[in-house]
Amino acid sequence: MTEFTSGTLTGKNLHLSFGHNHVLRGIDLHVEKGTTASVIGPSGSGKSTLLRVMNRLIEPDQGDILLDGRSVLKDNPDELRQRIGMVFQQFNLFPHKTVVDNVSLALRKLRKLPKDQAHAEALEQLDLVGLKHKADARPANLSGGQQQRVAIARALAMKPEVMFFDEATSALDPELVKGVLALMADLAKGGMTMVVVTHEMGFSRNVSDTVTFMDAGVVVESGPPEQIFTSPGTDRLKGFLSDVL
């Protein structure tokens, strides 16, 4: 894998409410440059919302977000999101465009690269995820695992400093999960800063540098994977682990 110009990402005391529903209740999350933080927790605990707040797809009500130590809340959110790649549970490839156009679109329109160059760079990214031969296919003609790898290539093409994965393997058939997780592990090893919301406890334990356990909008426990998985300090984490393991 290539090397990345990755950054350090910090969320401080993040709050978010939808009406009376207080979804995030003062979340702190720190991801050191080049490391992988996984976020685990039951459904509805606010994990996916946290990702969307940290790249400002949803603006936080309160709190701060720092990239390399500098607050990004006053920046143009579109520019911030160019620096943070995101991969979704449902892939969200653009079905009306070919695979290679999915990857090159942002290069052409946001990076303003000439068409040939954007195309060449997109092919390079597809090669990294092993799908160069699918460049001219439509997303609908790819398997779920292939679609997700294209989605990863699409995000990587923008040379992000941080990558977000929102339950990236939850919608995949079991036999396709492995390939996507292996790709994510490669990125982590290559030094990408990653925040991985996941139900894959094996990945969380073996690949990530820190694990954050969220429940009901708060961080209940956080620490190195060994500590979280072998000696959970709270009943809530113990209960969650016994449910999922």
Binding site: D78, R81, P95
Partner: peptide
């Protein structure tokens, strides 16, 4: 058009207007 399309486009760094023009409206 699925909400995820707009979200994915915005996550790439496209503005609301560009996302509509390039991704959502054509579909």
């Amino acid at each position: 058009v699925e909400k995820g399309q707009l979200e994915a486009s915005r996550a790439l760094g496209f503005s609301y207007g560009s996302s509509m023009r390039l991704v959502v409206v054509p579909q």
